[in-house]
Simulated scan of single mutants.
Amino acid sequence: MTSQITTQLPLPPHFHPSKVGEIWRVPYQQRAAEAEAWTKQHNIKPAANDKTRICLLLIDVQNTFCIPGFELFVGGKSGLGAVEDNQRLCEFIYRNLGIITTIISTLDTHTATQIFHPIFWINSNGEHPTPAATTITPKDIDQGIWQVNPAVAHSITNSDYELLKKHAYHYLKQLSQNGKYPLIIWPYHSMLGGIGHALVPSIEEAIFFHNLARQTQTKFEIKGENPLTENYSILRPEVLLDFAQNPLAQKNINLIQQLLKFDAVIIAGQAKSHCVAWTIDDLLTEIQQIDPTLTQKVYLLEDCTSPVVVPGVVDYTEQADAAFSRFSTAGMHIIKSSATIAALF
């Protein structure tokens, strides 16, 4: 790793941990000039020179999940989970600026009329399900508790309501047969074009600073826009085939191949119990089909991710911890953001 910095860097003056849970505008041109000066001051080389290529994969570090008061803020056990995670994550990026080759950031991306949003479903009174407190199973359809809202067929299946019902029922059955979470009705979140969809400013700023300092393009991966399937994982949707066994959505083959070409992949983001766990699980599945020893190149930042916890409603801490334990057993490394990354390779 002769072309890379082997010690941790200091935090740049512009970083303020107290602002991580706030919304503000990143001053791009100012940060670009500061990044150039920072590069000269600390002799940071372009990422193209890296002998050991390290990817930081950030899962859904967006306002909708990471800012208190937003739609699906991930509070974790502490109640401030995502804010605390992102304070550590920003510090991790800045301290390892000269070591991280590429940052890939995923963006959960939705519109209103999707299978996991309230508008998609109604009961016999025409009422929509309560978000975050409602799951829907095939049994609920059979018993008439919930049905697809006929009005949404206009937008999704060109007004073919029977076709849409077939799609939905097949989807629910596939979730139960494949060991996935049942369909959860979520609050409207990560809405395309809205402020909730944007990256948390502190993370966006750190990513931008890295982009300029290392002269390497940040990569963004969009997921979740298909109206007929959830897409917790960036690597594949929850269900791939429709009721007629035709492709419903596709695996993200290009990203899988990109990740496996790196010497190391470090993963953080939100939420530990859902999008993070499902992404890692899908990556593990791909690795096991190719070469199980490749798990050794995957590192999980356990203190930069939190589970979904809605006090008095749901708590996915146990499921999240069980998933990370399974990933560790498979050969992946569980590390903390304070670790000296250069010493790991």
Score class of each variant (00 low, 15 high):
78 S>A: 08
313 V>E: 03
198 A>D: 14
99 I>W: 12
12 P>Q: 07
176 S>N: 07
79 G>C: 09
94 Y>E: 08
244 A>P: 00
201 P>Q: 03
157 T>Q: 08
329 T>Q: 13
39 T>S: 13
120 F>T: 00
291 D>V: 06
212 L>Y: 07
136 I>T: 03
137 T>K: 02
3 S>V: 11
171 Y>H: 15
115 I>S: 04
9 L>P: 00
241 L>D: 07
203 I>G: 02
287 I>E: 06
172 L>G: 10
113 T>G: 00
204 E>V: 02
48 A>E: 15
42 H>S: 13
240 L>Q: 11
295 T>H: 12
64 T>P: 06
77 K>P: 01
174 Q>N: 09
7 T>Q: 15
277 A>S: 15
250 Q>D: 14
17 P>T: 13
111 T>D: 13
325 S>G: 12
276 V>Q: 04
130 T>H: 03
184 I>E: 09
313 V>C: 04
337 S>K: 04
189 H>K: 12
220 F>I: 10
26 V>Y: 08
114 Q>W: 10
186 W>S: 10
265 V>H: 01
61 V>G: 00
194 G>E: 12
154 H>E: 15
61 V>Q: 08
311 P>S: 06
41 Q>W: 03
183 L>Y: 08
101 T>N: 10
279 T>K: 12
102 T>S: 13
212 L>H: 05
287 I>R: 01
344 L>M: 12
103 I>D: 07
120 F>K: 05
44 I>H: 10
199 L>D: 01
170 H>R: 07
20 V>N: 00
143 Q>G: 04
278 W>I: 11
130 T>Y: 00
153 A>R: 03
260 L>C: 02
86 N>H: 15
298 V>I: 15
29 Q>V: 04
337 S>Y: 01
89 L>S: 13
230 E>K: 00
150 P>M: 06
114 Q>N: 11
327 F>E: 04
17 P>G: 08
344 L>I: 14
226 N>Y: 02
275 C>W: 03
167 H>I: 07
91 E>A: 11
230 E>A: 10
170 H>C: 11
189 H>F: 11
148 V>G: 08
49 N>G: 02
97 L>K: 03
287 I>P: 03
281 D>V: 01
115 I>V: 11
220 F>A: 12
243 F>A: 11
28 Y>E: 14
19 K>F: 05
74 V>S: 14
303 D>Y: 08
38 W>Y: 15
100 I>N: 00
153 A>G: 03
153 A>L: 08
